[in-house]
């Protein structure tokens, strides 16, 4: 398996109008390492993740550099950043079957047969082949979350951003799904940023926890 790059954030600042959210954040995330960002809802956690994808909403100001391995992401468009992201909602495309959703994440230029084969192999690995032709709306919450995760990983991202992906799940599925996510992060050695407001979401092996708003202490 190809070794993933290190994520480096250099003097990142984010503010809403004149109100600073993050000032001068410097951060290094190793492959397979998880860094958590915590803070009350509405403090700008999700906006920070979007900003790392290059999507800065109006009235927000963002500055600083984002480096991933050898690559400087700061000026790259979203499509070229090779970022994977999971949200609170599964965001499965409602007009495609489970198979279609997964196939969408496959690279261009595969034949129909190859697509089918790869998707089915993946589903087989997690013992979910029976769901292949299902309408995503008919899946259970846990199933949806897992398909969403698989879809993200299938696109072979270099960096994983998690925007409270567990908050909509019930207790039991939540802890199961957490374990699955952590295992995949370790397996694919993805540098990961996790945003949450629930300290229970933060895994034991998480190396750093950053509180938002972050106004320039010397964490690094």
């Amino acid at each position: 398996m190809k070794m993933q790059g290190i994520l480096q954030l250099r003097s990142i600042s984010l503010s809403f109008g004149s109100e600073p959210i993050i000032q001068g954040l410097n951060l290094t995330v190793q492959p397979g390492e998880i860094v958590a960002l915590m803070g009350p809802s509405g403090c700008g956690k999700s906006t920070f993740l979007s900003a790392l994808c290059g999507l800065i909403p109006e009235q927000f100001q963002f500055s600083g550099e984002v480096l991933l391995g050898q690559q400087n992401l700061t000026q790259l468009p979203l499509a070229k950043r090779q970022v994977g992201m999971l949200f609170q909602e599964d965001l499965l495309f409602p007009h495609m079957s489970v198979k279609g959703n997964l196939a969408f994440a496959l690279p261009q230029g595969l034949s129909r047969h190859e697509r089918h084969h790869q998707v089915m192999a993946l589903l087989d690995e997690v013992r979910m082949t029976a769901l292949a032709d299902r309408d995503p709306a008919t899946l259970s919450g846990g199933q949806k979350a897992r398909i969403s995760l698989l879809r993200t990983l299938l696109a072979k991202p270099q960096l994983l951003l998690l925007d409270e992906p567990f908050s909509k799940l019930d207790q039991v599925t939540r802890s199961q799904f957490r374990q699955l996510v952590w295992s995949y992060i370790t397996r694919y050695q993805l540098p990961t940023l996790l945003v949450t407001h629930d300290s229970a979401d933060i895994p034991g092996h998480c190396s750093q926890v950053i509180q938002l708003p972050y106004l320039g202490s010397t964490l690094c």
Binding site: S50, P77, L78, A79, R81, G84, M85, L91, H95, A155
Partner: peptide, 27 residues
Amino acid sequence: FDQRYLTVATMLSGRPRYSYWRIKMAM
């Protein structure tokens, strides 16, 4: 329309135009 569908699609496929038609317009 939940713009995050388009964000996800662009991240997954690496193709913004294709995602626009295949996801946003199709939805």
